[in-house]
């Protein structure tokens, strides 16, 4: 029974993710005061992509790339408790399992894109991996004080440990929270740090050779990715939520990143990495020091 429950769960999250992407396009449209597509547009896009007759593939690894990407994000989803709603497997793994599974996605996509032997794709991947040097560190340093404070590495227990509104981790550790926000912007690949899929510069980066169903898979991967990344952030900083409040929380966080995405221009890659080693790094170190002093 749990297998069916697992499929349903995954489908639900994918659809919600696609709706988030539709909402994002709607928000950016309204910011540019135009109507923008209907919210369910991404679902249509995915269906259209899967309906494509035949798409070009450059080898087994090329076609397996999106598959591994989706595997990575799906596996991470399973280990991530959504609010205090406990999914199947969060007991068998903690923060580090999630962090390392998060990397499997981009690595799989990178392998596939690498196989497509297109220089745009490779430049895109080089940027994606270098960006990780920037935001991954800040994200980890932002979440570290929370885990250290509650003395556990399992996300579920961190959620339980945080009480009602006034003693959320976001309130107790404001500096780390802000640093986490900076990191989230990079993690999601939103506009100031949208160097990986920069359509104008490197023709949508790694996705340059992906068409049809591969692109469909990558869209789903991106959709689930939004939920997982924002969900992780919400779990750590916003404490125990019912499933509804959890999705509301993720949407609010997602809404914030989309707004920033709609108005910000794009960094050059070395500027982006250097930016992360500037203010956000300082903030996260302050966060850690705060834990030492305050605890």
């Amino acid at each position: 029974m749990s297998i069916l429950y697992f499929f349903l769960y995954l489908l639900l999250v994918t659809i919600i993710g696609l709706l988030y992407m539709g909402a994002a396009r709607k928000i950016t449209a309204h910011i540019q005061n135009r109507y923008g597509p209907p919210v369910y547009q991404p679902i249509l896009d995915v269906l259209k992509l899967f309906a494509k007759k035949d798409t070009a593939s450059h080898g087994i690894m090329h076609s397996l790339g999106p598959v591994i990407a989706y595997t990575g994000i799906a596996a991470t989803l399973l280990f991530l408790p959504l609010g205090n709603h406990t999914p199947l497997l969060h007991f068998n793994g903690d923060l580090f399992v999630v962090l390392y599974l998060l990397v499997v996605g981009p690595l799989g996509m990178a392998l596939g894109a690498g196989e497509s032997a297109n220089s745009n794709a490779t430049i895109g991947i080089a940027r994606a991996l270098s960006m990780m040097l920037g935001y991954e560190i800040i994200f980890f340093m932002a979440t570290l004080p929370v885990f250290y404070h509650y003395g556990t590495a399992s996300i579920y227990r961190v959620i339980q440990a945080q009480g009602a509104f006034p003693d959320w981790a976001a309130i107790l550790f404001p500096i780390s929270f802000i640093a986490g926000l900076f990191a989230l912007q990079g993690l999601m690949g939103e506009k100031p740090f949208e160097l990986v899929v920069a359509p104008h510069e490197i023709a949508s980066g790694p996705m340059v050779e992906y068409g049809g169903k591969y692109l469909g898979l990558l869209q789903i991967w991106h959709a689930v990715g939004i939920i997982v990344e924002t969900g992780l952030f919400v779990d750590i900083f916003f404490g125990p939520q019912s499933i509804l409040w959890f999705f509301a929380g993720t949407f609010i966080v997602f809404f914030a990143t989309v707004i920033v995405n709609a108005v910000m221009p794009r960094f050059r890659i070395e500027q982006a990495v250097r930016f992360y080693w500037g203010l956000p790094l300082l903030l996260s170190i302050l966060g850690i020091l705060q834990v030492y002093i305050w605890r």
């Binding site: 697992f6 499929f7 995954l10 899967f50 309906a51 494509k52 007759k53 035949d54 798409t55 076609s63 999106p66 598959v67 591994i68 989706y70 595997t71 990575g72 799906a74 596996a75 399973l78 280990f79 497997l89 007991f91 068998n92 793994g93 903690d94 923060l95 580090f96 399992v97 599974l101 499997v104 885990f147 003395g151 556990t152 590495a153 399992s154 049809g212 169903k213 469909g216 898979l217 789903i220």
Partner: peptide, 28 residues
């Protein structure tokens, strides 16, 4: 601090890989 069940992690990765491979195969 935390607890990890490694075979489960491996199993999950295998399962999800099978799932996404299935999605990949049913498409065109």
């Amino acid at each position: 601090l935390g607890h990890v069940n490694f075979p489960v992690v491996g199993l999950v990765m295998g399962l999800t890989f099978a799932l996404s491979l299935f999605i990949y195969l049913i498409a065109g």
